[in-house]
């Protein structure tokens, strides 16, 4: 089991080391994920219903779907 794990880690380490074009692509992927999750998601894309209980969510959506009483 440990041998398999070691082989798997070795497989990925060697794979990443041997990359040429892949390095550029990984840089793009990491930068993009940082912008998506570290900037956009955190500061610009809050979920308006987050942190509410299911009943509160239902109440909020019901209010939004119905005209003022």
């Amino acid at each position: 089991m440990i041998s398999l794990l070691r082989k798997t880690i070795r497989f990925y380490v060697d794979g990443f080391r041997a990359m040429t074009l892949g390095r550029t692509l990984w840089m793009i992927i990491l930068l993009k994920l940082f912008v998506l999750f570290g900037v956009l998601r955190l500061f610009f894309l809050p979920d308006p219903l987050a942190g509410r209980s299911p009943a509160q969510r239902a109440e909020s959506v019901r209010e939004n779907l119905l005209p003022e009483p």
Binding site: L36, R41, L45, P46, D47, L49, A50, A58, L65
Partner: peptide, 18 residues
């Protein structure tokens, strides 16, 4: 495509709940 899923939560919360 993850941005689309973010948008469902942020911009389309009535739809996402419904």
């Amino acid at each position: 495509g993850i941005i689309l899923e973010f948008e469902f939560g942020t911009n389309w919360s009535n739809y996402s709940h419904f």
